[in-house]
């Protein structure tokens, strides 16, 4: 979404992306400035805003009209593998609403030391869950959901999507420029190491092709979450994140969230992940380097 033209000559596309909360942080700031400088641009923004509609509410009225009996009939007889697909839906299919994403990211940014919570229910259909060999992934998501539900009573704010999703939402806000000035102070790294209880210094120079730019101490569900931010040689922002975890150990796995690649694993009481818009093999090599650098 980042575009060189956003600041100079914002186009309708940029204004709509602005309204939709889809601009990167730097583009949004540039457009804020452009809007404050230009009355015609503000008018154009308001015109485009008039093209908004209660789309979701209007279309939600159609959901009840889906011919479920006939659609269900189209589903093949349940098989073991079909159950896997059905079960993988356990955390309710809450859409990846950009407001929620921004909310999660903003809270990660702003609420050091304050965990966030959640607001949606589990899928009502828990049946059949035990009939499949439950994947570690699902257990983890369930546990996170339960934690999140417990927290929801206190602060029903943001959809719980687990720590990796929260990190992915935050990572989407990063551009090359976000990390261009080196912000890596030794103090932040020392604080992060202390709070998470791991010497992190080796991780700042462990991965070839990555320049360490910054350490940040964030929080997820009231647990310290460390983010080490790097820039790849090609300017791609990459983050290495660590959070305490009581989950069983798990070897590295690859997944994609928000279009970003993630390699994650659990070891020695920590959940770790590497995230960035890089191919799986490259990300896996980086994860391997970083994994070796952490003494677990």
């Amino acid at each position: 979404m980042s575009s060189a033209g956003t600041a100079d000559h914002p186009r309708d596309e940029d204004l709509v992306a602005y309204l939709d909360g889809e601009l990167s942080l730097s583009d949004r700031q540039a457009l804020d400035q452009a809007l404050s400088d230009s009355a015609p641009l503000r008018q154009r923004l308001e015109l485009l805003r008039q093209g908004d509609r209660p789309f979701r509410a209007a279309f939600d009225t159609l959901l009840d009209q889906a011919p479920m009996d006939r659609l269900m009939a189209a589903l093949p007889e349940p098989t073991l593998s079909a159950s896997v697909i059905a079960t993988s839906n356990a955390p309710a299919p809450r859409p990846a609403n950009d407001w929620h994403s921004i909310g999660v990211a903003a809270m990660l940014l702003l609420t050091l030391g304050i965990g966030f919570a959640v607001g949606f229910g589990t899928s009502s259909d828990q049946a059949g869950k035990r009939e499949v060999a439950l994947l570690a992934e699902l257990d983890e998501m369930e546990a996170e959901l339960e934690e999140a539900e417990a927290a929801a009573d206190a602060a029903p704010v943001v959809a719980a999507k687990g720590w990796r999703q929260a990190v992915a939402d935050y990572q989407m806000l990063f551009t090359t420029e976000s990390l261009t000035p080196d912000q890596g102070g030794a103090a932040a790294l020392a604080l992060a190491s202390e709070r998470v209880g791991l010497p992190l210094d080796p991780a700042t120079r462990a991965a070839s092709g990555l320049q360490f730019r910054r350490a940040q101490l964030l929080a997820f569900n009231e647990k310290p979450l460390v983010q080490l931010a790097y820039l790849g040689d090609d300017g791609v922002p990459v983050a290495f994140c660590i959070i305490a975890s009581n989950k069983p150990e798990a070897d590295t796995q690859y997944e994609v969230r928000n279009g970003l690649g993630i390699v994650h694993w659990i070891i020695g009481g920590y959940g770790l992940m590497v995230i960035g818009d890089l191919p799986e093999d490259r990300l896996s090599r980086i994860a391997s380097d970083l994994r070796k650098s952490i003494n677990l």
Binding site: R11, D12, E13, L19, L47, G51, D52
Partner: peptide
């Protein structure tokens, strides 16, 4: 982006 922008413009 272009399609959404065109749609919004049309609706506006």
């Amino acid at each position: 982006m272009s399609r959404l922008s065109a749609a919004r413009g049309k609706l506006a």
